[in-house]
Nucleic acid binder design. Structure first.
Lengths: 208, 208
DNA sequence: ACCTGAACACCGTTCAAGT
DNA sequence: ACCTGAACACCGTTCAAGT
Protein backbone atom coordinates (compact mmCIF):
# COMPACT_ATOMS: atom_id res chain seq x y z
CA UNK A 1 0.00 0.00 0.00
CA UNK A 2 1.21 3.46 -0.98
CA UNK A 3 2.23 6.00 1.62
CA UNK A 4 0.37 9.31 1.46
CA UNK A 5 1.06 12.66 3.13
CA UNK A 6 -2.17 12.23 5.09
CA UNK A 7 -1.05 8.91 6.62
CA UNK A 8 2.24 10.44 7.68
CA UNK A 9 0.53 13.42 9.35
CA UNK A 10 -1.95 11.10 11.04
CA UNK A 11 0.78 8.89 12.47
CA UNK A 12 2.83 11.92 13.54
CA UNK A 13 -0.17 13.39 15.38
CA UNK A 14 -0.74 10.07 17.13
CA UNK A 15 2.88 9.93 18.34
CA UNK A 16 2.60 13.53 19.53
CA UNK A 17 -0.59 12.87 21.49
CA UNK A 18 0.60 9.66 23.09
CA UNK A 19 4.30 10.34 23.71
CA UNK A 20 5.01 14.07 23.17
CA UNK A 21 7.37 16.04 20.99
CA UNK A 22 10.59 14.39 22.18
CA UNK A 23 9.40 11.11 20.68
CA UNK A 24 8.28 12.63 17.40
CA UNK A 25 11.38 11.70 15.39
CA UNK A 26 11.65 10.80 11.73
CA UNK A 27 12.95 7.33 12.53
CA UNK A 28 10.28 6.57 15.10
CA UNK A 29 7.61 7.85 12.72
CA UNK A 30 8.96 5.66 9.92
CA UNK A 31 8.96 2.63 12.24
CA UNK A 32 5.31 3.28 13.18
CA UNK A 33 4.43 3.46 9.48
CA UNK A 34 6.50 0.37 8.70
CA UNK A 35 8.62 2.15 6.09
CA UNK A 36 12.29 3.06 5.98
CA UNK A 37 13.28 6.53 7.29
CA UNK A 38 14.27 7.59 3.78
CA UNK A 39 10.70 7.08 2.53
CA UNK A 40 9.53 10.12 4.50
CA UNK A 41 11.89 12.31 2.50
CA UNK A 42 10.00 11.54 -0.67
CA UNK A 43 6.92 13.26 0.80
CA UNK A 44 8.54 15.98 2.92
CA UNK A 45 11.71 17.95 2.22
CA UNK A 46 12.80 17.79 5.86
CA UNK A 47 11.58 17.44 9.44
CA UNK A 48 10.64 21.13 9.75
CA UNK A 49 8.26 20.85 6.83
CA UNK A 50 6.65 17.76 8.32
CA UNK A 51 6.23 19.48 11.71
CA UNK A 52 4.66 22.43 9.89
CA UNK A 53 2.10 20.07 8.37
CA UNK A 54 1.32 18.66 11.82
CA UNK A 55 0.96 22.21 13.15
CA UNK A 56 -1.52 23.01 10.40
CA UNK A 57 -3.52 19.91 11.24
CA UNK A 58 -3.63 20.91 14.92
CA UNK A 59 -4.77 24.43 14.01
CA UNK A 60 -7.62 23.28 11.78
CA UNK A 61 -10.31 23.74 14.47
CA UNK A 62 -9.12 27.32 15.06
CA UNK A 63 -9.65 28.24 11.41
CA UNK A 64 -13.43 28.44 11.17
CA UNK A 65 -14.37 31.92 9.91
CA UNK A 66 -15.02 34.75 12.35
CA UNK A 67 -18.56 34.75 13.57
CA UNK A 68 -18.67 37.69 15.97
CA UNK A 69 -19.00 41.29 14.86
CA UNK A 70 -16.71 43.88 16.44
CA UNK A 71 -12.93 43.72 16.45
CA UNK A 72 -12.65 43.11 20.20
CA UNK A 73 -14.66 39.90 20.06
CA UNK A 74 -12.91 38.85 16.87
CA UNK A 75 -9.52 39.04 18.60
CA UNK A 76 -10.76 37.51 21.85
CA UNK A 77 -12.53 34.69 20.03
CA UNK A 78 -9.64 34.00 17.67
CA UNK A 79 -7.24 33.78 20.59
CA UNK A 80 -9.46 31.51 22.64
CA UNK A 81 -9.87 29.16 19.71
CA UNK A 82 -6.13 29.18 19.11
CA UNK A 83 -5.46 28.33 22.74
CA UNK A 84 -8.07 25.57 22.73
CA UNK A 85 -6.53 24.02 19.63
CA UNK A 86 -3.05 24.07 21.20
CA UNK A 87 -4.27 22.51 24.44
CA UNK A 88 -5.96 19.67 22.53
CA UNK A 89 -2.63 17.97 21.75
CA UNK A 90 0.36 17.09 23.89
CA UNK A 91 3.05 19.76 23.45
CA UNK A 92 0.74 21.51 20.97
CA UNK A 93 1.88 24.99 21.93
CA UNK A 94 5.56 24.06 21.70
CA UNK A 95 5.12 22.46 18.28
CA UNK A 96 3.13 25.34 16.81
CA UNK A 97 5.52 27.90 18.31
CA UNK A 98 8.46 26.21 16.63
CA UNK A 99 6.65 25.94 13.29
CA UNK A 100 5.51 29.55 13.49
CA UNK A 101 9.05 30.74 14.24
CA UNK A 102 10.35 28.69 11.31
CA UNK A 103 7.67 30.15 9.05
CA UNK A 104 6.36 26.66 8.25
CA UNK A 105 2.72 26.99 9.27
CA UNK A 106 0.27 28.26 6.66
CA UNK A 107 -2.48 28.14 9.29
CA UNK A 108 -0.58 30.52 11.57
CA UNK A 109 -0.10 32.90 8.65
CA UNK A 110 -3.84 32.83 8.08
CA UNK A 111 -4.56 33.46 11.77
CA UNK A 112 -2.17 36.42 11.82
CA UNK A 113 -3.87 37.85 8.72
CA UNK A 114 -7.28 37.67 10.37
CA UNK A 115 -6.06 39.23 13.61
CA UNK A 116 -4.41 41.98 11.57
CA UNK A 117 -7.73 42.77 9.91
CA UNK A 118 -9.34 43.05 13.34
CA UNK A 119 -6.51 45.31 14.53
CA UNK A 120 -7.03 47.52 11.48
CA UNK A 121 -10.69 47.81 12.48
CA UNK A 122 -9.50 48.95 15.90
CA UNK A 123 -7.82 51.90 14.19
CA UNK A 124 -4.24 50.61 14.00
CA UNK A 125 -2.59 52.10 10.91
CA UNK A 126 -1.74 49.92 7.89
CA UNK A 127 1.63 48.27 8.35
CA UNK A 128 1.34 48.22 12.16
CA UNK A 129 -1.77 46.06 12.03
CA UNK A 130 0.21 42.91 11.27
CA UNK A 131 2.66 43.76 14.03
CA UNK A 132 -0.27 44.17 16.41
CA UNK A 133 -1.52 40.75 15.31
CA UNK A 134 1.91 39.18 15.87
CA UNK A 135 2.09 40.77 19.32
CA UNK A 136 -1.18 39.11 20.25
CA UNK A 137 0.08 35.80 18.85
CA UNK A 138 3.34 36.00 20.83
CA UNK A 139 1.18 36.29 23.93
CA UNK A 140 -1.08 33.35 23.13
CA UNK A 141 1.83 31.07 22.21
CA UNK A 142 3.95 32.13 25.20
CA UNK A 143 1.14 31.88 27.70
CA UNK A 144 -0.17 28.56 26.43
CA UNK A 145 3.25 26.89 26.13
CA UNK A 146 3.88 27.91 29.73
CA UNK A 147 0.46 26.73 30.88
CA UNK A 148 0.76 23.43 29.02
CA UNK A 149 4.20 22.59 30.38
CA UNK A 150 3.01 23.15 33.95
CA UNK A 151 -0.15 21.16 33.21
CA UNK A 152 1.83 18.23 31.85
CA UNK A 153 4.40 18.48 34.59
CA UNK A 154 2.02 17.93 37.47
CA UNK A 155 -0.19 15.61 35.45
CA UNK A 156 2.38 12.95 36.32
CA UNK A 157 3.13 14.24 39.82
CA UNK A 158 0.83 15.52 42.54
CA UNK A 159 -2.83 15.37 41.53
CA UNK A 160 -4.18 18.24 43.57
CA UNK A 161 -7.33 17.39 45.53
CA UNK A 162 -9.15 20.22 43.74
CA UNK A 163 -9.24 19.07 40.12
CA UNK A 164 -10.85 22.15 38.66
CA UNK A 165 -10.24 25.58 40.15
CA UNK A 166 -6.48 25.81 39.92
CA UNK A 167 -5.89 23.49 36.99
CA UNK A 168 -8.44 24.77 34.49
CA UNK A 169 -10.51 27.68 35.78
CA UNK A 170 -7.60 29.81 37.01
CA UNK A 171 -5.56 29.50 33.79
CA UNK A 172 -8.58 30.55 31.74
CA UNK A 173 -9.14 33.59 33.91
CA UNK A 174 -5.45 34.44 33.69
CA UNK A 175 -5.46 33.97 29.93
CA UNK A 176 -8.42 36.34 29.59
CA UNK A 177 -6.62 38.89 31.77
CA UNK A 178 -3.60 39.18 29.48
CA UNK A 179 -5.87 39.26 26.47
CA UNK A 180 -7.81 42.17 27.93
CA UNK A 181 -4.60 44.08 28.56
CA UNK A 182 -3.65 43.66 24.90
CA UNK A 183 -7.09 44.54 23.57
CA UNK A 184 -7.34 47.63 25.78
CA UNK A 185 -3.88 48.66 24.63
CA UNK A 186 -4.93 48.31 20.99
CA UNK A 187 -8.08 50.29 21.66
CA UNK A 188 -6.09 53.13 23.24
CA UNK A 189 -3.60 53.16 20.40
CA UNK A 190 -6.29 52.88 17.74
CA UNK A 191 -8.24 55.78 19.18
CA UNK A 192 -5.26 58.11 19.19
CA UNK A 193 -4.41 56.97 15.65
CA UNK A 194 -7.96 57.71 14.47
CA UNK A 195 -7.78 61.12 16.13
CA UNK A 196 -4.56 61.91 14.29
CA UNK A 197 -6.11 60.81 10.99
CA UNK A 198 -9.16 62.97 11.64
CA UNK A 199 -6.92 65.93 12.47
CA UNK A 200 -4.93 65.47 9.23
CA UNK A 201 -8.20 65.22 7.39
CA UNK A 202 -9.39 68.53 8.75
CA UNK A 203 -6.07 70.19 7.90
CA UNK A 204 -6.33 68.83 4.37
CA UNK A 205 -9.83 70.22 3.97
CA UNK A 206 -8.79 73.62 5.28
CA UNK A 207 -5.86 73.75 2.84
CA UNK A 208 -7.72 72.22 -0.13
CA UNK B 1 44.61 22.56 34.55
CA UNK B 2 41.25 22.16 36.28
CA UNK B 3 38.03 22.86 34.47
CA UNK B 4 35.78 25.45 36.07
CA UNK B 5 32.14 26.35 35.44
CA UNK B 6 33.30 29.75 34.21
CA UNK B 7 35.53 28.25 31.49
CA UNK B 8 32.69 26.07 30.28
CA UNK B 9 30.28 29.01 30.06
CA UNK B 10 32.93 31.12 28.31
CA UNK B 11 33.57 28.46 25.70
CA UNK B 12 29.85 27.85 25.22
CA UNK B 13 29.25 31.56 24.65
CA UNK B 14 32.05 31.63 22.09
CA UNK B 15 30.56 28.73 20.14
CA UNK B 16 27.16 30.43 20.24
CA UNK B 17 28.51 33.73 18.94
CA UNK B 18 30.61 32.20 16.18
CA UNK B 19 28.48 29.28 15.01
CA UNK B 20 24.99 29.57 16.53
CA UNK B 21 22.80 27.33 18.64
CA UNK B 22 22.80 24.33 16.31
CA UNK B 23 26.54 23.95 16.92
CA UNK B 24 26.31 24.36 20.67
CA UNK B 25 26.42 20.66 21.54
CA UNK B 26 27.95 18.99 24.58
CA UNK B 27 30.40 17.03 22.44
CA UNK B 28 31.52 20.04 20.43
CA UNK B 29 31.90 22.08 23.63
CA UNK B 30 33.98 19.31 25.21
CA UNK B 31 36.20 19.16 22.11
CA UNK B 32 36.78 22.92 22.26
CA UNK B 33 37.76 22.60 25.92
CA UNK B 34 39.94 19.57 25.20
CA UNK B 35 38.11 17.36 27.68
CA UNK B 36 35.95 14.29 27.28
CA UNK B 37 32.17 14.84 26.95
CA UNK B 38 31.62 13.15 30.30
CA UNK B 39 33.68 15.80 32.08
CA UNK B 40 30.97 18.40 31.49
CA UNK B 41 28.54 16.28 33.52
CA UNK B 42 30.64 16.75 36.61
CA UNK B 43 29.92 20.49 36.48
CA UNK B 44 26.40 20.53 35.04
CA UNK B 45 23.60 18.03 35.61
CA UNK B 46 22.54 18.16 31.95
CA UNK B 47 22.50 20.29 28.82
CA UNK B 48 19.47 22.34 29.90
CA UNK B 49 21.26 23.47 33.04
CA UNK B 50 24.30 24.48 31.04
CA UNK B 51 22.18 26.43 28.55
CA UNK B 52 20.52 28.14 31.52
CA UNK B 53 23.92 29.26 32.74
CA UNK B 54 24.73 30.65 29.27
CA UNK B 55 21.37 32.44 29.25
CA UNK B 56 22.18 34.04 32.60
CA UNK B 57 25.53 35.19 31.26
CA UNK B 58 23.87 36.76 28.22
CA UNK B 59 21.32 38.53 30.42
CA UNK B 60 23.93 40.05 32.74
CA UNK B 61 23.92 43.48 31.00
CA UNK B 62 20.13 43.64 31.34
CA UNK B 63 20.28 43.25 35.11
CA UNK B 64 21.56 46.64 36.23
CA UNK B 65 19.06 48.11 38.69
CA UNK B 66 16.20 50.29 37.48
CA UNK B 67 17.25 53.88 37.13
CA UNK B 68 14.12 55.61 35.86
CA UNK B 69 11.25 56.61 38.11
CA UNK B 70 7.71 55.80 36.99
CA UNK B 71 6.44 52.36 36.10
CA UNK B 72 6.05 53.12 32.38
CA UNK B 73 9.73 53.94 31.93
CA UNK B 74 10.74 51.05 34.16
CA UNK B 75 8.93 48.61 31.88
CA UNK B 76 10.05 50.29 28.66
CA UNK B 77 13.66 50.48 29.84
CA UNK B 78 13.72 46.93 31.16
CA UNK B 79 12.38 45.62 27.86
CA UNK B 80 14.79 47.60 25.75
CA UNK B 81 17.71 46.35 27.81
CA UNK B 82 16.43 42.79 27.54
CA UNK B 83 16.14 43.08 23.75
CA UNK B 84 19.61 44.62 23.47
CA UNK B 85 21.12 41.78 25.50
CA UNK B 86 19.42 39.16 23.31
CA UNK B 87 20.57 40.83 20.10
CA UNK B 88 24.17 40.90 21.32
CA UNK B 89 24.63 37.15 20.78
CA UNK B 90 23.83 34.87 17.85
CA UNK B 91 20.51 33.10 18.52
CA UNK B 92 20.37 34.93 21.87
CA UNK B 93 16.58 35.22 21.83
CA UNK B 94 16.09 31.57 20.95
CA UNK B 95 18.46 30.40 23.68
CA UNK B 96 16.93 32.58 26.39
CA UNK B 97 13.41 31.66 25.29
CA UNK B 98 14.19 27.98 25.66
CA UNK B 99 15.86 28.47 29.05
CA UNK B 100 12.98 30.62 30.27
CA UNK B 101 10.43 28.03 29.17
CA UNK B 102 12.44 25.32 30.92
CA UNK B 103 12.63 27.44 34.08
CA UNK B 104 16.42 27.35 34.00
CA UNK B 105 17.27 31.04 33.96
CA UNK B 106 17.62 32.79 37.30
CA UNK B 107 18.17 36.06 35.46
CA UNK B 108 14.81 35.80 33.68
CA UNK B 109 13.13 35.12 37.03
CA UNK B 110 14.72 38.30 38.36
CA UNK B 111 13.61 40.31 35.32
CA UNK B 112 10.03 39.04 35.69
CA UNK B 113 10.07 40.02 39.37
CA UNK B 114 11.14 43.55 38.54
CA UNK B 115 8.57 43.95 35.78
CA UNK B 116 5.91 42.62 38.15
CA UNK B 117 6.81 45.32 40.68
CA UNK B 118 6.39 47.94 37.96
CA UNK B 119 3.04 46.44 36.95
CA UNK B 120 1.92 46.61 40.58
CA UNK B 121 2.80 50.31 40.56
CA UNK B 122 0.58 50.64 37.50
CA UNK B 123 -2.32 49.48 39.64
CA UNK B 124 -2.46 45.80 38.63
CA UNK B 125 -3.74 43.77 41.58
CA UNK B 126 -1.44 41.41 43.49
CA UNK B 127 -1.30 38.03 41.78
CA UNK B 128 -1.99 39.49 38.33
CA UNK B 129 1.16 41.61 38.46
CA UNK B 130 3.42 38.64 37.74
CA UNK B 131 1.14 37.57 34.91
CA UNK B 132 1.33 41.08 33.49
CA UNK B 133 5.12 40.84 33.69
CA UNK B 134 5.13 37.47 31.91
CA UNK B 135 2.87 38.88 29.21
CA UNK B 136 5.38 41.62 28.54
CA UNK B 137 8.20 39.07 28.51
CA UNK B 138 6.35 36.83 26.03
CA UNK B 139 6.21 39.83 23.73
CA UNK B 140 9.89 40.75 24.04
CA UNK B 141 11.05 37.16 23.51
CA UNK B 142 8.66 36.53 20.64
CA UNK B 143 9.38 39.77 18.85
CA UNK B 144 13.14 39.56 19.27
CA UNK B 145 13.43 35.89 18.27
CA UNK B 146 11.49 36.78 15.13
CA UNK B 147 13.58 39.87 14.45
CA UNK B 148 16.83 38.03 15.05
CA UNK B 149 16.01 35.11 12.77
CA UNK B 150 15.15 37.49 9.92
CA UNK B 151 18.28 39.51 10.67
CA UNK B 152 20.49 36.43 10.55
CA UNK B 153 18.70 35.05 7.53
CA UNK B 154 19.44 37.97 5.25
CA UNK B 155 22.81 38.63 6.85
CA UNK B 156 24.05 35.81 4.60
CA UNK B 157 21.82 36.66 1.65
CA UNK B 158 20.91 39.96 0.03
CA UNK B 159 22.62 42.88 1.74
CA UNK B 160 20.07 45.60 1.08
CA UNK B 161 21.57 48.83 -0.29
CA UNK B 162 20.12 50.74 2.65
CA UNK B 163 21.99 49.35 5.64
CA UNK B 164 20.11 51.23 8.32
CA UNK B 165 16.47 52.13 7.89
CA UNK B 166 14.94 48.72 7.38
CA UNK B 167 17.49 46.58 9.20
CA UNK B 168 17.83 48.46 12.48
CA UNK B 169 15.69 51.59 12.67
CA UNK B 170 12.43 49.98 11.57
CA UNK B 171 12.67 47.03 13.98
CA UNK B 172 13.31 49.43 16.86
CA UNK B 173 10.30 51.53 15.95
CA UNK B 174 8.20 48.39 15.60
CA UNK B 175 9.47 47.05 18.94
CA UNK B 176 8.50 50.30 20.64
CA UNK B 177 5.06 50.14 19.05
CA UNK B 178 4.17 46.77 20.58
CA UNK B 179 5.62 47.87 23.89
CA UNK B 180 3.39 50.96 23.90
CA UNK B 181 0.33 48.82 23.20
CA UNK B 182 1.17 46.68 26.24
CA UNK B 183 1.95 49.62 28.50
CA UNK B 184 -1.24 51.44 27.51
CA UNK B 185 -3.20 48.27 28.13
CA UNK B 186 -1.69 47.96 31.60
CA UNK B 187 -2.44 51.61 32.31
CA UNK B 188 -6.08 51.15 31.30
CA UNK B 189 -6.41 48.00 33.39
CA UNK B 190 -4.58 49.50 36.35
CA UNK B 191 -6.80 52.58 36.36
CA UNK B 192 -10.01 50.56 36.43
CA UNK B 193 -8.53 48.35 39.15
CA UNK B 194 -7.64 51.39 41.25
CA UNK B 195 -11.14 52.75 40.74
CA UNK B 196 -12.65 49.47 41.94
CA UNK B 197 -10.39 49.51 45.00
CA UNK B 198 -11.37 53.08 45.76
CA UNK B 199 -15.05 52.18 45.37
CA UNK B 200 -14.70 49.23 47.76
CA UNK B 201 -12.89 51.51 50.14
CA UNK B 202 -15.74 53.97 50.14
CA UNK B 203 -18.26 51.18 50.65
CA UNK B 204 -16.24 49.88 53.58
CA UNK B 205 -16.12 53.32 55.15
CA UNK B 206 -19.86 53.77 54.69
CA UNK B 207 -20.54 50.40 56.32
CA UNK B 208 -17.88 50.66 59.01
C1' DA C 1 37.26 15.45 43.76
C1' DC C 2 37.63 15.39 39.11
C1' DC C 3 38.16 13.26 34.73
C1' DT C 4 38.83 9.46 30.87
C1' DG C 5 37.27 5.81 27.79
C1' DA C 6 34.06 3.49 26.08
C1' DA C 7 29.77 2.27 25.56
C1' DC C 8 24.39 2.73 25.00
C1' DA C 9 20.76 4.12 22.54
C1' DC C 10 19.69 6.95 19.65
C1' DC C 11 19.38 11.17 15.85
C1' DG C 12 18.44 13.74 10.59
C1' DT C 13 19.65 13.25 5.98
C1' DT C 14 21.43 11.36 1.58
C1' DC C 15 21.56 8.40 -2.25
C1' DA C 16 22.64 4.43 -5.25
C1' DA C 17 19.95 0.82 -6.36
C1' DG C 18 15.75 -1.52 -6.92
C1' DT C 19 10.61 -2.09 -8.58
C1' DA D 1 7.06 7.52 -9.12
C1' DC D 2 8.02 5.66 -4.95
C1' DC D 3 10.72 3.13 -1.73
C1' DT D 4 14.76 0.18 0.47
C1' DG D 5 19.29 -0.48 2.51
C1' DA D 6 22.98 1.18 4.06
C1' DA D 7 25.81 4.51 5.09
C1' DC D 8 27.54 9.33 6.96
C1' DA D 9 28.20 12.22 10.49
C1' DC D 10 26.65 13.13 14.27
C1' DC D 11 23.82 13.46 19.20
C1' DG D 12 23.02 13.39 25.06
C1' DT D 13 24.02 10.70 28.88
C1' DT D 14 26.02 7.13 31.95
C1' DC D 15 29.46 4.91 34.51
C1' DA D 16 33.31 1.80 35.77
C1' DA D 17 37.81 2.78 36.25
C1' DG D 18 41.65 5.68 36.91
C1' DT D 19 44.47 9.62 39.38
Amino acid sequence: MQLHKRDVIDAATAILDNFGMADLTMRRLARELAVSPGALYWHFANKQELLGAVADRILQPALEPHVPPGWRDQIADGCHRLRDALLSHTDGAELVSASFAAGQSAAMTEIVTRLAAAAADAGVAGSDAELAARTVVYYVLGFTADEQSRLQWDAAGATLPDGQSVLTAEPSRRFAFGLTVLIEGLAAHGDSELLATARDDLTQRRLG
